[in-house]
């Protein structure tokens, strides 16, 4: 009987010990989180139409003054040490005329990130190779409203002097600029 009491006592003490061990003052639980940022490379243009007109009101003067503005919107997320470039090709520029574009990086407050560097007076020539409009684009966004984005200011004029005679009146021909954003080689 005494042995049994002893055993019970030991069991009791052990139970107390166990409870002490289990008592917690603070405890943690870890939780793992996977966070992915895929590369993003999106380019769009605003739907607003660009309409340029080449004319003059002075007898003897050459036609000039075709200017207009378009916007190219970009979302870009690059991996480390990668940059992107926007290039342009064109079709549909009327004979005898020359179209140039200045590209300014967005600055209206709806943009963020590394927007790169613009260019000025880049000639857009039918059938020519792609020309570079914006370089060193990183992770950035330009905003999505109609006047957000890279500002493409087109200047349309008569072309080379020798080609003036090839100009013909047109009530509305359409030139199409194809913009492409690519990883900089």
């Amino acid at each position: 009987m005494k042995n049994l009491i002893l055993i019970i006592g030991m069991v009791g003490a052990f139970s107390m010990l166990t409870i002490n061990v289990c008592a917690q003052d603070s405890e943690t639980s870890n939780h793992s989180l996977d966070m992915g940022i895929p590369e993003v490379c999106l380019l769009d243009t605003d739907a607003g139409s660009i309409s340029l007109e080449l004319t003059t009101t002075e007898a003897g003067a050459q036609i000039s003054g075709g200017t207009g503005t378009g916007y190219a919107q970009v979302s870009s997320i690059v991996s480390a040490a990668e940059t992107r470039t926007i290039e342009a090709t064109i079709t549909g520029v009327p004979a005898g005329t020359s179209l140039e574009v200045d590209t300014a990086i967005p600055s209206n407050g709806n943009q963020g990130g590394i927007l790169g560097s613009g260019t000025s007076s880049v000639a857009l020539v039918n059938g020519a190779g792609a020309v570079t409009l914006v370089t060193t684009i990183g992770s950035c966004f330009t905003g999505t409203s109609a006047t957000d984005g890279y500002v493409l200011s087109y200047t349309w004029d008569a072309g080379a002097v020798g080609d003036y005679g090839s100009i013909v009146a047109t009530t509305g021909s359409t030139a199409t600029v194809v913009l492409t954003i690519t990883n900089t080689p």
């Binding site: 943690t28 940022i37 895929p38």
Partner: peptide
């Protein structure tokens, strides 16, 4: 703060561990 910090973002996969702690009373 995307207007200033967006350019810092880099495409990648990141794994982090969050620890939840219930403190001592």
């Amino acid at each position: 703060s995307p207007s200033t910090n967006y350019g810092l973002i880099e495409s990648n996969t990141y794994n982090i561990i969050v620890v939840f702690t219930i403190t001592a009373h």
